[in-house]
Design a protein around this nucleic acid. Sequence first.
DNA 1: GTCTATATAGGGATAGAC
DNA 2: GTCTATCCCTATATAGAC
Lengths: 185, 185
Amino acid sequence: MSKEETVIPKLIPVFRQYGYEGTSLSMLAKATGLGKASLYHHFPQGKEGMATAVMNYIANSFSQAVLQPLNNSDKPDKKIHQMCRGLKEFYNDGKNNCFLAIMSFGEAQSLFGELVKQQLQLWLDTLEKVLIEAGIEPEQAELRSQAAIMEIQGALILVRILNDTAPFERAIANLPEKLFRVPIA
Amino acid sequence: MSKEETVIPKLIPVFRQYGYEGTSLSMLAKATGLGKASLYHHFPQGKEGMATAVMNYIANSFSQAVLQPLNNSDKPDKKIHQMCRGLKEFYNDGKNNCFLAIMSFGEAQSLFGELVKQQLQLWLDTLEKVLIEAGIEPEQAELRSQAAIMEIQGALILVRILNDTAPFERAIANLPEKLFRVPIA
DNA sequence: GTCTATATAGGGATAGAC
DNA sequence: GTCTATCCCTATATAGAC
């Protein structure tokens, strides 16, 4: 494990709570216990480099927790069940903001918008394939995958505003049923 | 119409695109055509005052476009239909970010979090009453109202990331059916 | 009511000692 | 690899002329 990889986890909660523009080098220095100059030693591209490193690190965690279960050799309903478990863990029961949502507006949008879009598309495509494997029509599979991710994103916002994780927990609990059995017009 | 009320609409798109922390006085000055000092004449509380004014202005627009139809004397399904029309207009077919989502994280959360929560709760309660009026059980009415707003919020995020308004349009199109006819576990 | 000019603080970033 | 010290710039905010 390289030195950067021990620093990155300390950067994550700062960017996650305050967003790209709301995060300052001072905050990152405090969170890591390093001076600003030391941060530049590890990340010569400065704040943008740190955010990029965080994005990649998170993409990897997400892949492990959420996508990998969808790509294994279990039956579709078990894959979805495991994705749900992964989502609860990844989003800390809904208390974590989603980096895709955070990094897709303001100045961050021009810096990371394309990367964010690719990550989201990867999630959509992976989910869609599982539904098709389960015998759902391709168009329905696409619509339901989108609807599922929409609900999760919306749930995270409600949790944040209402300061109550119930909406997220319900959304996760209802996800398998909706994906497998509720048609979309 | 006071002078401030002619300035506020010019502030809105800046805060909406860049968020609270991502918006600077220079941007606001440029957007209004006024100097920074002039902005302080209209809003002695500076950036925070401008954001507050924008929040109140938007709350009013939202009330007119979305809540008012829910409070009139039409039949429930017509009320919902009119809310959907209002939502499409208010969110500019999904291209507008939601201020509730934007102002509920980072530094803005501590400044406006309570106001945002109240606004969201008002929407939830108003919607819930219409569903109850339509004969839906109170617990279902609450769950479906939450689910509906979740979908809209999630749809706005997908639109932003994918740069495609289709998810929002579908979410709105399916809203009446979901509110009136799709039970939540 | 708007401006120019300015005050003060903090931002991101770098140089160079250790 | 970490630090102190510093640079430059932009941020918010204010003073005071017009």
